[in-house]
């Protein structure tokens, strides 16, 4: 690392571009980031302390209302419900589903022939790349009363039901596992490829079966990757809107209204921009904490 840095700084100063030439290229990116990213983030903080609205008296004149939105946030039963549903959605689809399935796929695909990896990986990645709206429609059809899942269940002798209304949160969890597993699978595949072969070989020579090699040798080495991937999956999962919106619209009766859907409903359905923003800010703060933790887990040399 050090050698590289000195080599980089080692160019004779006269040959290196001047200060203007060095900073000027950053301007377009800085402009876009400040105008469209930092601006809205700061605005989020400000607007959450106001009664900004789309219609009515508050739309004409926006007033500072102090902590009122946050008091409401803490006492609103809808917020509590949405937080619990978001947690269920996060743990069910992100932490359990995607991680377990992604790890399983990565382990099974390890060392298999090229076409096997290509075929299985291709199918899983295609689900990941498929636009969220389409994934929502596909899963809505799959879980319909007349849909494919019920067809399979009936063949197995189970009673059909309309999953989108009977178990809406399970329905969106399943859809999100399907949609998101590819990310974990790719992360774990990359990490597995770096596990030293001789370590596994040594354990095998000592008489460990394949399952014990995985459990005692491979998984402990993957701890860092699992932690980093879980963080990224968490950040991705708490903000899922489209998939749920298309499949259930948050219903029936709010039984799949997670925080992003609640934010949308309050701000654009009921026109209460200030309160909707406060819900968004709560989401932003939680995600910000996770993002900061993620930064800390990166090795310093990765950010040069």
């Amino acid at each position: 690392m050090a050698g590289e840095t000195t080599a980089r700084r080692g160019a004779p100063p006269a040959l290196r571009p001047g200060p203007a030439a060095r900073v000027l290229p950053l301007v377009p990116a800085l402009f876009l980031l400040l105008a469209f990213f930092a601006g809205p983030v700061l605005w989020t903080v400000w607007a959450s302390f106001t009664d900004a609205a789309l219609t009515g008296a508050a739309a004409a004149r926006t007033d500072f209302v102090g902590l009122r939105n946050f008091e409401r946030l803490l006492t609103d039963p809808d917020v509590l419900d949405a937080t619990v549903l978001t947690a269920v959605f996060l743990v069910g689809s992100g932490v359990l589903g995607q991680t377990a399935l992604g790890l399983l796929l990565a382990l099974l695909m390890q060392g298999r022939r090229g076409w096997v990896r290509g075929a299985v990986g291709g199918v899983v990645v295609a689900a990941w790349v498929l636009p969220e709206v389409v994934a929502g429609f596909v899963w809505a059809a799959f879980l319909e009363r007349e849909g494919t899942l019920n067809l399979l269940l009936q063949a197995a002798g189970a009673a059909p039901q309309s999953w989108l209304t009977s178990l809406p949160i399970l329905a969106v969890v399943l859809a999100n596992v399907w949609k998101g597993t590819a990310f974990s699978m790719m992360a774990y595949s990359a990490a597995l490829a770096e596990v030293p072969v001789d370590l596994k070989e040594a354990a095998r020579v000592d008489g460990a079966g394949p399952l014990r090699v995985v459990w005692h040798v491979v998984l402990p080495l993957l701890r860092r990757t699992v932690a980093a991937t879980l963080l990224l999956v968490t950040l991705q999962t708490v903000q899922v809107f489209t998939l749920i919106f298309v499949m259930t619209g948050g219903g029936p009766g709010g039984r799949s209204t997670t925080l992003p859907l609640l934010m949308y409903r309050e701000a654009l359905g009921f026109g209460d921009i200030g309160y909707g923003t406060a819900v968004g800010l709560a989401l932003l703060v939680v995600a910000g904490l996770f993002s900061a933790v993620h930064l800390r887990t990166l090795r310093p040399e990765e950010v040069r």
């Binding site: 980031l33 469209f36 990213f37 601006g39 809205p40 983030v41 605005w43 989020t44 607007a47 900004a52 963080l231 990224l232 950040l235 708490v238 903000q239 899922v240 809107f241 992003p260 934010m263 949308y264 701000a267 654009l268 921009i273 909707g276 923003t277 968004g280 800010l281 989401l283 932003l284 995600a287 910000g288 996770f290 993002s291 900061a292 993620h294 930064l295 990166l298 950010v303 040069r304």
Partner: peptide
Amino acid sequence: GRPFLYTVLFATGLPLTAIMVPVYSL
């Protein structure tokens, strides 16, 4: 450079959904 990169990396983790209501009102 370093603080800038850290900020950029931090921003990659922020959920776009969460800022969309204020973006809309802006």
